[in-house]
Simulated scan of single mutants.
Amino acid sequence: MDRRALLRGTVIGAGAAVFGGSLMRGAAYAAPAQKGPGPYGALQAADANGIMLPSGFTSRIVARSGQQVGSTGYTWHPAPDGGACFADGSGWIYVSNSETTPGGAGSITFNSSGQITGARRILSNTRNNCAGGSTPWNTWLSCEEVSGGYVFETDPKGVNAAVRRDAMGRFKHEAAAADPVRKVVYLTEDESDGCLYRFIPNTWGNLSAGTLQVLKAGTATSGSFTWANVPDPDGSPTTTRSQVSGAKRFSGGEGCHYANDTVWFTTKGDNRLWQLNLSNNTYELAYDDSLVSGGGAPLTGVDNVTGASSGDLFVAEDGGNMEICIITPDDVVAPFLRITGQSSSEVTGPAFSPDGKRLYFSSQRGTTGSSSGGITYEVTGPFRA
């Protein structure tokens, strides 16, 4: 059974149910995804850009760190990391963080044909901007991956000045995912004993004030959860993750994605993809490399995650085989692409253009293994709807 389709259509009951052929414990939980053939077929030989792709897909390089983006006159930032796409008239904008100090973020504008028509700096003078997330009102939340780090709300077009959103808490921020149904923003924390948070703005669409909460749950890999207020979002002198008894610990929170009453987020310390079922306040493992049967887990070094309209998840690797792997709605995981010759890098910033026909991502350190060697790519092909 298609787990994500079921989640879209029903509220899961407390009794046992069959998911993907497995009768699970107590409540209805799906077995973590297993390796299998991907929907696009096997990877072909590397192309001229060193990218291995399924048949029918092509790649191009759209930016290199330290070099001018197209004919725009703008120099692309070092260590490109988290990213997102935004509609812009008949075209779109791709936003990318810079995981250095000083860090920040930049963006590239494309017309309806995919040609580069502009690029600019949209955030400056920040620290280690790793991941982040988009909002329904078309801003980019750029997150500082440092102790006491902030979230900065930025304009992808670079017209409006970036704003620091103190109410979203000070901690080692990683990714953000907006939930327009519950009118909250979920936040991951990149600490070995980190937490998962949600921010409830006083007014949806305005992140200047609100309530920061932390997820509370047991120590198991599945169960029910609740939320509790963080007394002091400033995190000083007591860190945010240490303020609430019973807050659930996650080993190095990374990417975060919301769709269809579900939040998916990754933890790098244990190579897991977690799933929050918001319709019934339960959580479970969607993927765990140690639970892949038959040996040879296809996805390791889990990091940034995004989703397609098909319900497919795309998870980038920090290490591993330098792949972006796909996890299908029927819980099959397989490589979608592989970057060759760049083993000292990591794959970052996967994001689809608004029409779902182009996938953007970066190799943070490229062929040089240095933050100055980042490369940002675009893949075009027959992505399924």
Results as ranks from 00 to 15, higher is better:
S59E: 10
G9E: 14
S22R: 13
I339V: 15
D289L: 00
G366R: 05
L207H: 04
H77V: 15
V315L: 15
G148I: 12
I61A: 05
G36E: 08
I375S: 07
A177I: 08
D179I: 00
G341K: 08
R170P: 02
V379W: 07
D166Y: 10
A286M: 11
G296W: 02
F152A: 06
P136K: 12
R198M: 03
R384P: 00
N260E: 11
T139P: 00
K35V: 04
N202H: 14
S96P: 00
T72H: 12
N111C: 05
K35Q: 15
D331I: 00
A79M: 10
E191W: 02
R3E: 13
F336N: 06
G311D: 02
G114I: 09
G70E: 14
V163W: 00
L7D: 06
S279V: 04
A14I: 04
W137V: 03
A259L: 03
G132R: 04
G132L: 09
T10I: 10
T376P: 01
S372T: 14
G149Q: 14
D330R: 11
G223Q: 05
V18C: 10
A17P: 01
L187Y: 07
G253F: 03
A63S: 14
L291E: 15
N202C: 07
I51Y: 09
T100L: 10
F86M: 06
T219V: 15
P382M: 09
